[in-house]
């Protein structure tokens, strides 16, 4: 029997909003697919897009970056800076032939446990449809 594709999704969650939001998802017993591997960062503004590229190269099929809603960053503007960088990097990925849908971003606050579980479900479905990332296999 053909093995079902189980995607590897790497998530970079901001300490102040999305990581706490993910925690709430757990304590509230909302279910979400176990494909997500979470890494806590202090702020989405800290994420160097090379970390995303490195995640892809080391076997991730998708990457999620999640942080505070615009205007609610613990450091005032980190998420705005992240949005700019990730937007440009998605365009670059698309230009070299990697589907930009593999790099997703979301705003999840510490009180949005339900939203976090929905985001993860949706992204996992998306990546399942796209199939494994084979660009970095050779």
């Amino acid at each position: 029997m053909l093995k079902k594709f189980d995607p590897n999704i790497m998530a970079f969650l901001c300490n102040w909003c999305s990581y706490a939001g993910a925690d709430l998802t757990g304590t509230s017993h909302f279910h979400y697919p176990p494909n997500l591997k979470a890494i806590r960062v202090m702020c989405t503004g800290r994420i160097n897009p090379l970390m995303v590229a490195a995640a892809f190269r080391h076997g991730a099929d998708g990457v999620l970056i999640s942080g505070c809603h615009p205007g609610e960053c613990h450091y005032m503007e980190g998420n705005y800076l992240a949005r700019r960088k990730i937007f440009v990097f998605r365009n670059l990925l698309e230009f070299v032939g990697i589907n930009p849908e593999r790099l997703q971003m979301s705003w999840v606050s510490a009180s949005e446990g339900k939203k976090f579980s929905n985001v993860v479900k949706e992204i996992t479905e998306k990546i399942k449809k796209l199939g494994p990332l084979t660009t970095f296999d050779e």
């Binding site: 705005y80 949005r83 700019r84 937007f87 930009p100 971003m105 979301s106 705003w107 999840v108």
Partner: peptide, 16 residues
């Protein structure tokens, strides 16, 4: 520099 500045109206529609 581009990545040291931002505009609150930067594209947001690719974000959940």
């Amino acid at each position: 520099p581009l990545f040291a500045s931002f505009n609150p109206k930067d594209p947001n529609d690719f974000i959940f």
